[in-house]
C-alpha cells in the first residue's frame, strides 16, 4: 500500500468519523429541543454529503492501495515476468517482492552443460603426481 493511498484512506476515515459524530450530535440535540421543530429523522444535507464523500474517498483509497492484480493466463504471466524481471514486482512494494518466484524458464536457461570427466581425471592425476 503506497503512501498516497494510505493518506486518502485516512482522510476519508477522519471525514467519516466527523460525519458520524455530527449525526449523533444532531440526533441528540433534536431529541431534546422538541419545540424547535427539528425532526430527528431528516439529517442536514451537509452531513449527508460529507458521509457519501467520505465513503467514496475511503473506497478510492482502498482500491488504490490494494495489491496489483496478476495476469491469470500462463503465457501473459510468464511473458510479463520475463520482460520485467524482479524490477516489475519491485515497483509494487515489499509484498510483491516477497512473492516473486523468478523467471519460470530459469530451469531451461541456466542448465549446466556436460562435464568433461576424463579431463578432470587427467588434471587430478597431474596434480597428484606433481605433489609427490
Amino acid at each position: 500500500m503506497g503512501f498516497p493511498a494510505r493518506l486518502v484512506t485516512l482522510a476519508g476515515l477522519v471525514l467519516l468519523a466527523h460525519a458520524g459524530y455530527s449525526a449523533q450530535e444532531h440526533a441528540a440535540l433534536s431529541s431534546t429541543l422538541v419545540n424547535l421543530q427539528l425532526s430527528a429523522k431528516t439529517l442536514p444535507l451537509d452531513i449527508s454529503i460529507e458521509t457519501i464523500v467520505a465513503t467514496l474517498l475511503v473506497s478510492l483509497g482502498l482500491i488504490w492501495g490494494s495489491p496489483q492484480l496478476r495476469p491469470i493466463q500462463w503465457h501473459v504471466w510468464a511473458g510479463k515476468i520475463e520482460r520485467e524481471g524482479i524490477a516489475g514486482s519491485a515497483s509494487q512494494g515489499k509484498e510483491a517482492e516477497k512473492n516473486f518466484q523468478g523467471n519460470p524458464f530459469n530451469a531451461l536457461e541456466f542448465r549446466s552443460g556436460f562435464v568433461d570427466i576424463r579431463k578432470q581425471r587427467r588434471d587430478f592425476a597431474d596434480w597428484a603426481k606433481s605433489g609427490k
Binding site: L62, I63, S66, P67, L69, R70, P71, I72, Q73, W74, H75, W77, N99
Partner: peptide, 19 residues
C-alpha cells in the same frame, strides 16, 4: 492450450474479496 496460473487466480480473487 492456454494454461492458467492458479496462484494468480487465487491472488486476484483474494484481493477482490478482501476489498
Amino acid at each position: 492450450i492456454h494454461p492458467i496460473v492458479q496462484e494468480s487466480v487465487v491472488h486476484n480473487a483474494k484481493t477482490l474479496s478482501n476489498f
